[in-house]
Design a protein around this nucleic acid. Structure first.
Length: 307
DNA sequence: AAGACGAAAGTGGTTGA
DNA sequence: TCAACAACTTTCGTCTT
């Protein structure tokens, strides 16, 4: 009996297995097929029944998509009061007041922001793991006061963008912009700012990560899709990819492989789904042809068609 | 007539003095 | 902080199918 090969949602065969999170994600539509990895290993060793009880833990799972990560802290309870003397009593009230002020400000912000984050995330059909990551990034950003002077929405969008890239399911700035209603420039700016301030390192995104999604929205065959990935690999070795926008390269690779497999798409169509202009595709396309002799193959399929 | 191609000028961001 | 620079876009005219 074969293992799950196709996404039940869109039928794509392009599945991504994230071992760390125990998820299988469809790269095309973002559907999470499996997220039920259970770690059965114990994290402690039991020497005797006593220490085992102390270390054993239980409770609700912690999650960043809840505004307080599912764990709340409050300063004291009024029932503690009778234990405290006069001085400590006033100190107690002061502390609680501050705690209240700080936490309500942050919490209120987080509640709103996380709602917005969930909305945008479901609009983009992002997997849960990416949403969690984005929520984590946003929470850190709020705690460091990085939201000040920026709109909440733009920071949310920036966090999402960063989370997508970290999980190798990149979305373009255009897509984020459409989902959040924030300008492309602004998202890029806050994205850079937040990642720099939080010291989050992000690998330059790989053009191949875009292929699956672009190919499926262009309705290209799996053959063209895998050919495009092959082309990308060669292009990368010839240093055609460094310094270039990854979306443009991905788009050009797809355009070429579509030609080779006789599934012609206009430059306009490819350009639209990739969020670049025809000119960029043309430039990349030209470079690809120069470096890898693909012209023969294109001609071949042309002749075939005539017959 | 639509698509492909290429030149020229403009934009926003990075880099290095 | 500013200027040089590369990548990409916009716009537009010409060639090809």
């Amino acid at each position: 009996m074969a293992y799950v090969k196709k996404c039940p949602e869109c039928g794509s065969i392009n599945l991504f297995h994230n071992r760390e999170k125990g998820e299988v994600i469809c790269k095309d539509c973002g559907l999470v097929l499996e997220d039920k990895m259970v770690d059965f290993s114990q994290e402690w060793r039991e020497f005797d029944s006593d220490s085992g009880d102390k270390k054993r833990r239980t409770g609700a799972p912690m999650t960043y998509t809840q505004f307080d990560q599912g764990l709340g802290t409050e300063v004291g309870q009024s029932s503690d009061l009778n234990v405290l003397g006069g001085k400590n009593r006033s100190k107690f009230f002061r502390l609680r007041k501050w705690q209240y002020r700080i936490s309500t400000a942050i919490e209120r912000n987080l509640k709103l922001a996380l709602a917005e984050l969930k909305r945008a995330s479901s609009f983009l059909k992002l997997p849960k793991s990416v949403e969690e990551e984005a929520a984590r990034i946003y929470t850190l950003a709020v705690q460091r006061g990085l939201v000040r002077g920026r709109s909440m929405e733009s920071v949310v969008a920036g966090a999402l963008y960063a989370a997508c890239r970290r999980h190798e399911v990149p979305r373009t700035l255009d897509e984020l912009s459409e989902a959040s209603g924030i300008e492309k420039k602004e998202i890029g700016r806050t994205y850079r700012f937040v990642t720099r301030e939080l010291g989050i390192t992000i690998l330059p995104s790989n053009p191949a990560d875009y292929i699956a999604r672009f190919a499926s929205s262009l309705k290209l065959s799996p053959e063209s899709q895998s050919r495009a990935v092959e082309i990308l690999e060669v292009a990368q070795k010839s240093e055609l990819t460094s310094g270039r926008g990854p979306t443009g390269i991905a788009a050009a690779a797809l355009y070429v492989s579509a030609l080779i497999h006789g599934e012609k798409r206009t430059q306009r169509e490819v350009a639209d789904v990739a969020g670049v202009t025809e000119v960029t595709i043309r430039n990349r396309y030209k470079e690809l042809l120069e470096e890898l002799d693909l012209e023969k193959e294109i001609k071949k399929t042309k002749k075939k068609k005539k017959r």
